[in-house]
Design a protein around this nucleic acid. Structure first.
Lengths: 119, 119
DNA sequence: CGGCCTTGTAACGCCCCCCGATATACCTTC
DNA sequence: GAAGGTATATCGGGGGGCGTTACAAGGCCG
């Protein structure tokens, strides 16, 4: 998994950063994190969790049965924390670059810094 | 296009925010923007540009022939600027959420705010 | 008792991205 | 002046994450 994380995956890791949660609970947590913008469906969620477990970014902390339903609790691994951290940095740099250029544009500036500069 | 932009597309829009550029030039500009992390290949670039033009986020400003080679200059449209702006906001919120949780975790805090804490 | 809620499973298609190969016309090199 | 490299754009194949839909199974509520 050297591909950059997509939004659903990123938010799942973020949700798990605080404390372990079970799959279905993540649906609500991710929705809360994203102000309701990202509404995960089961197919998306469990597919992503399986991939994350395969990649070693997340593991199963425990399973319990509540009211006859299985609850499987997922937890962020140290590798998952490292990945979330570096992905966050990557996104932050992109946000800063875009913000700078949008601001520059808004003020009508006409002096590009990076453009075509270094071959 | 209500799907979130992926990184290559996002960086292309960011590169175009400063001034119109031709396709091949964008390869270098996106590389510079991302500190060399994102090295677009022609197939990726032009595919993305075609999709962006179809979506109305980018249009062709002009074409010129230099040294017998065609240069097609692409420009950010108002819709493209709006999209880039809102995408940037979205990313910023994600970055802030992840940063907060990672910091909370680093300091060993055990008081989640959003999480279904009372389970 | 019947229907809804909760939690997890399974199968299928789409779309974006990645890559490699190709076309062409200059410019350099010998 | 022919051969090869460079700049610029095009085309087609393939893969992986995500969305979607349907389904299973057992409690709770009316």
């Amino acid at each position: 998994m050297d591909t950059p994380l997509r939004e659903p995956t990123f938010l799942i890791l973020t949700a798990l950063a605080t404390e372990p949660m079970h799959g279905y609970g993540l649906i609500g947590e991710v929705a809360a994190l994203s102000d309701g913008r990202v509404a995960l469906r089961p197919g998306t969620l469990y597919g992503a969790l399986d991939r994350l477990v395969d990649a070693g970014l997340v593991d199963v902390e425990r399973e319990e049965v509540v009211d006859g339903r299985l609850r499987r609790y997922y937890r962020l691994t140290p590798a998952g924390e490292a990945t979330l951290s570096s992905e966050t940095d990557r996104l932050r740099r992109n946000v800063e670059a875009a913000t700078a250029r949008l601001r520059e544009r808004a003020t009508g500036a006409t002096a590009p810094r990076l453009a075509g500069g270094l071959a």
